[in-house]
């Protein structure tokens, strides 16, 4: 599973990956994800077994409480969907 696996959809992009951040999605990476997601015009959703969240909202992302190594899907819709998925996906794959 890597960034090469991004699927291109008719209106956006999708990537399924495992969260590699060592301690799960805690405040600091959540802050980084929402900051990064806000740089793109596309809307971006994080889908995990705990539910769905708007990647641009730190509160939404935090409340998903995604643990380390769990499977999630990033789904973006909009003009820069692929770039948005790649940028946030990169954070998901970082170790810390």
């Amino acid at each position: 599973m890597s960034l090469e696996d991004i699927e291109i959809l008719p209106r956006g992009a999708r990537l399924t990956l495992r969260l590699k951040i060592a301690n799960g999605l805690h405040a600091r990476p959540a802050a980084r994800i929402s900051r990064e997601a806000q740089r793109y015009r596309s809307s971006l959703r994080i889908i995990s077994e705990n539910g769905e969240a708007d990647a641009k909202s730190i509160l939404d992302v935090l409340s998903l409480a995604i643990p380390h190594n769990s499977l999630c899907t990033l789904e973006a819709t909009g003009p820069d969907a692929r770039e948005a998925v790649a940028a946030v996906g990169t954070i998901f794959l970082q170790q810390d």
Partner: peptide, 16 residues
Amino acid sequence: REIIAAQVEMTRDPKL
């Protein structure tokens, strides 16, 4: 700092 950095993000949180 990290605690405050997360609070900064919350002030422009789209959900909020």
